[in-house]
């Protein structure tokens, strides 16, 4: 089924269309979610949420972008939404811990469980994720879409709805900031 047929099937509420959309994009959605949340169960839950959102909003899709771009965009937005929610919860937990109500919320990286990472790379990848988490939202998104999902600059620009030069700049800054942050981390290890 090509994109146009799939879209028609989805907009008419066809069960076959829904199944086809999930079959085509589930792996991509899951791997992007793992880029933001390297905990398999969390990423799978989020993948389900993304598809529910896609089914609910399919009527709003006007076809200005390709179906794939739209799926990526909804996935990224859902991940960012979840990140903001977690940040808010973490802030709340911090204040609660100040007044002795609750322990400080644990860091996502402390639950690191990415099935795509080999055992020998686990510690190092976990460190990388801890530093990716510190990047600004846009830099982080560009980095995940480019380095983890392997999208081209044009595709990233379409997903993020920014210019090509912005994508280049975001990726450059993401890499610079990651290097700086990792350098600082390893310097501290030496002391």
């Amino acid at each position: 089924m090509n994109d146009q047929n799939l879209l028609t099937a989805l907009q008419t509420g066809s069960e076959q269309g829904y199944k086809e959309l999930v079959d085509t994009y589930q792996e991509k959605v899951l791997n992007i979610c793992l880029g933001y949340f390297p905990v398999y169960q969390d990423a799978e839950d989020l993948t389900q949420e993304v598809f529910v959102k896609l089914f609910e909003t399919i009527d709003n899709f006007r076809g200005e972008a390709s179906l794939g771009t739209w799926v990526y965009r909804v996935t990224v937005n859902k991940c960012l939404e979840k990140l903001r929610y977690r940040k808010r919860s973490k802030r709340m937990a911090f204040f609660q811990s100040l007044i002795g109500l609750e322990e400080h919320a644990s860091h996502v990286a402390s639950n690191f469980d990415h099935p795509g990472v080999t055992l020998e790379n686990k510690e190092r990848t976990k460190i990388l994720y801890q530093h990716i988490e510190r990047l600004a939202e846009k830099q982080r998104t560009a980095f995940i879409l480019s380095r983890m999902e392997g999208l081209s600059y044009q595709e990233i620009a379409a997903v993020m709805q920014v210019s090509l030069s912005s994508v280049e700049s975001l990726l450059f800054r993401a890499k610079q900031n990651l290097k700086k942050s990792l350098r600082f981390y390893y310097e501290k290890q030496l002391i």
Binding site: Q26, E27, L30, Y40, V117, R147, M148, L178, K179
Partner: peptide
């Protein structure tokens, strides 16, 4: 080396019962 680990992350297959 740490930055390079991103290239070693393998793609994860999704759950067959996802739908």
């Amino acid at each position: 080396r740490t930055l390079g680990t991103v290239d070693d992350i393998q793609r994860v297959e999704s759950n067959p019962y996802l739908y």
